[in-house]
């Protein structure tokens, strides 16, 4: 598939993952690709694990990404990147936010939160780009724009022109939040370059 990609977005319910995958899908559509996207709603929204699969290319059958098949694993939370690591294809890339969301299981069930998740991935030889998207989002005026900061970082790994991303953001982000999000996107791109 020419320039087709499979992108797996993961994180915790409430982090804006579904909007992010909508924007990627929209951008791919604008570029003329066939697109499929899949996620599980329902239970997962209550603070549970959320994953959204986006695939684009000339013709896409399966909306799901198999293990060892994701070109990019885009994670909104630190350990979630590590949880899903086997979905990354050899040679693929992890982009992860460094935000930690400690689940109640740590207190209720005495579990440990692996704070060194990024080091563990490095040790496995995985290509990881870790960014503090939450701080950058705060910097542009809204911590909730963290998802779009991450899209800015992701955009440097895909081959869509900037205008396509802007058009996709305009189509999917509510007008009153558009300016903050366009800035968040630019800051994300800058973050990827630095």
């Amino acid at each position: 598939m020419k320039n087709g990609k499979s992108i797996l977005l993961v994180g915790v319910g409430g982090q804006g993952i579904l909007l992010a995958s909508e924007v990627i899908s929209q951008a791919a559509m604008i570029q003329g690709f066939d697109v499929k996207k899949s996620e599980i709603h329902g239970m997962s929204q209550r603070g549970g694990v959320v994953s959204s699969h986006v695939r684009y290319g000339e013709h896409i059958y399966s909306p799901l990404i198999g293990k060892a098949s994701a070109d990019v694993l885009l994670s909104f939370e630190k350990v979630e990147s590590y949880r899903w690591i086997e979905y990354l294809r050899p040679g693929g890339e992890v982009i992860t936010n460094t935000t930690e969301i400690v689940p109640p299981a740590v207190y209720a069930m005495g579990k440990e939160y692996p704070h060194d998740a990024i080091d563990r991935m490095h040790k496995q030889g995985v290509n990881v780009l870790a960014v503090d998207a939450a701080s950058v989002a705060k910097g542009v005026g809204n911590v909730r724009a963290m998802n779009v900061v991450l899209l800015g970082v992701l955009s440097r790994k895909l081959s869509f022109p900037d205008e396509t991303w802007q058009e996709a953001l305009r189509a999917r982000v509510p007008k009153r939040h558009l300016e903050v999000n366009l800035n968040a996107f630019k800051e994300g791109q800058r973050l990827a370059a630095s």
Binding site: V12, G13, M43, S44, Q45, R46, G47, G48, V49, K67, A68, V79, Y82, R83, W84, I85, E86, L88, R89, P90, P103, P104, A105, V106, M109, K111, E112, Y113, P114, A117, R120, Q124, V126
Partner: peptide
């Protein structure tokens, strides 16, 4: 099999849905 597949992660941290 995939060449050099990435090993699955090793940790036990369930993140079940919870009351908000």
């Amino acid at each position: 099999e995939a060449s050099r597949p990435i090993e699955p992660s090793e940790f036990d941290l369930p993140r079940p849905p919870t009351l908000c």
